[in-house]
Design a protein around this nucleic acid. Sequence first.
DNA 1: TATGAATGAGAATTCATTCAT
DNA 2: TATGAATGAATTCTCATTCAT
Lengths: 187, 187, 187, 187
Amino acid sequence: MKEKLLRQSIELFEKKGFSETSIQDIVDALGVTKGTFYYYFKSKEQMLMQINLHYINDLLDTQLKIIEHPEKSWQDKLYDVVYMLISRIEKHGASARIFFRELVNLKGEYFEEILHKRDQFRIRFQYLIEQGIESGEFRNDLRADLMTLSILGSCNWSYMWFRTDGPVPEKELARSFLEVFLNGIKK
Amino acid sequence: MKEKLLRQSIELFEKKGFSETSIQDIVDALGVTKGTFYYYFKSKEQMLMQINLHYINDLLDTQLKIIEHPEKSWQDKLYDVVYMLISRIEKHGASARIFFRELVNLKGEYFEEILHKRDQFRIRFQYLIEQGIESGEFRNDLRADLMTLSILGSCNWSYMWFRTDGPVPEKELARSFLEVFLNGIKK
Amino acid sequence: MKEKLLRQSIELFEKKGFSETSIQDIVDALGVTKGTFYYYFKSKEQMLMQINLHYINDLLDTQLKIIEHPEKSWQDKLYDVVYMLISRIEKHGASARIFFRELVNLKGEYFEEILHKRDQFRIRFQYLIEQGIESGEFRNDLRADLMTLSILGSCNWSYMWFRTDGPVPEKELARSFLEVFLNGIKK
Amino acid sequence: MKEKLLRQSIELFEKKGFSETSIQDIVDALGVTKGTFYYYFKSKEQMLMQINLHYINDLLDTQLKIIEHPEKSWQDKLYDVVYMLISRIEKHGASARIFFRELVNLKGEYFEEILHKRDQFRIRFQYLIEQGIESGEFRNDLRADLMTLSILGSCNWSYMWFRTDGPVPEKELARSFLEVFLNGIKK
DNA sequence: TATGAATGAGAATTCATTCAT
DNA sequence: TATGAATGAATTCTCATTCAT
């Protein structure tokens, strides 16, 4: 039941927005009553927090595994992280869109915690770039932080438009992105 | 007064979110009463629409002027569009963040109209890329639509983190982005 | 309207208790809507506070006037205070019963403020007794604080049972109480 | 367990009020679940009733024993009743405060029964006074009912402020009260 | 051009209670 | 004897909106 509530909420939060989705909407969609919601969650905000935590923790875990891989080149690791982000769109795209759009609805400690984890992801991403520079794979005449945010921006933005059932498969998008980031679009 | 209401609303919508900002909040901040709000705006949604229209129309106009410039190279035009987007963050960053985040709060025709204009911006951006390919400035072995969304994503995402009063000036960010997009980060 | 809401609330709070009286109950009794209530009061608790403040401030003011009277004996002043308390039952009995019974429903600063004012009333009452002792009107072999609480208790308790439309008029009750307090019931 | 539930409830009802204390609060404090509560009590109201009955029955029993004592003077019996009331504050003060304050939360037959027992206590108290008058111990120029309520009021009110761990011992308070009631405060 | 009183629909949340296990 | 899941009705409170002035 808790799982069902979370799934249904993610769907509705994404479609209508967190504030515009009432608890009534959620429980009606499942044929249960509001009391049930409050049996499993302390508040609407706490549920949003749970959704967000589930999303970002998963992301951080996977990112860490990629970066810590003992053999791959930094270029390959960059591909792996980009592919991870894009391939997640299908199953966790809704969670991701909620994560970014509804951040404003978290207050106090909740807000801080998410912010911190979001930063952590970016900092680790930047670490990957910096290691690539140091190893000589990436250019050393560009600011690592700006490269990071440039690439990360492209990936995150793809959550706004990429559809798995569209004409471009995930793998192609990831390769295409990498090609642009690594070699540029200039002839 | 109308201008003041719009400015105050943009500030509050950005900080607290559209749904979480009450009309009371807005008028309180200006020391007027709710009646005043309804004298100038038909509804809260219509006001959001006005904010969005103001933002996107301005953007479309400027974009058009850049693309239609009779002499510049496509590469320069790409820089101009990227710079336009980034330089707008200072004055219209709040509007932009509202534009993307609060889209879900527009219904029916309002929604369609904004969606259409947003697409128009992207399509024109893609046109710029395509012309650059045709003219031989950009690579012809990559999908124009994916290049477009990759670059646009980086720029749009910068609204989430770029601060004018930070260590990087607008011009440097634009140049840095261009460098990555054009030549890639690979050594 | 605010006045009407207060009057109606006092009536209902007394009859059913503060917690058991819903805002719906109050506004239904007046044929208005909940919004109206919240137009005039910030919360139910704040309204209770207003009722209590109105009651205790009035009491403190009158008490002060009696004590500061330049000529009367302390014995007469004691009578005046006792009579004031009893004569208030008719018009403000409900407020008084709410004041004592619902104190528990005030939190934080509200609670402290009421407590402080309640104490102030008692302290001034005790001052009256002490002055009477000093002037030689009252016995000096008894603790002033216990005398105070004994007499005050009788008066306050009368709010629980005394009805103006009963067989005993206010004046007689006050005189009767005084007679007991001053001379005792022993033959 | 039933005993524990009652004790915990008395503590919470007194501190927060009957309506403001949820069954959840009670069972949480004991580390059990709501089901347990409903195994021992039919409803929250019935539990309040049990608390009240326990309190008032005990009081009535003791009062009867005092009044029926074959040898003591009425004056001594008056002292005994006053002392009984005051000495009960330590162990049953919370119950007493609940008894008076939360009466409003009992409905129908519950309400009637408590009211009746409360009256019975007063009537018997008045009987004591009347017997004292008849025997010549107390003055016959005062209304017995008003004397009763005056003395009873003082005693009952002491539940609002008297603390066993304060500077005045129970016995002194009882003696002090008696002295005031019997001989008055006038010099 | 602006106010202030009022509305009514709906929001999140609480809670006594039930019941199968 | 006790639990835990679920209910449903009620509660406080918010808010966009209207309208007479």
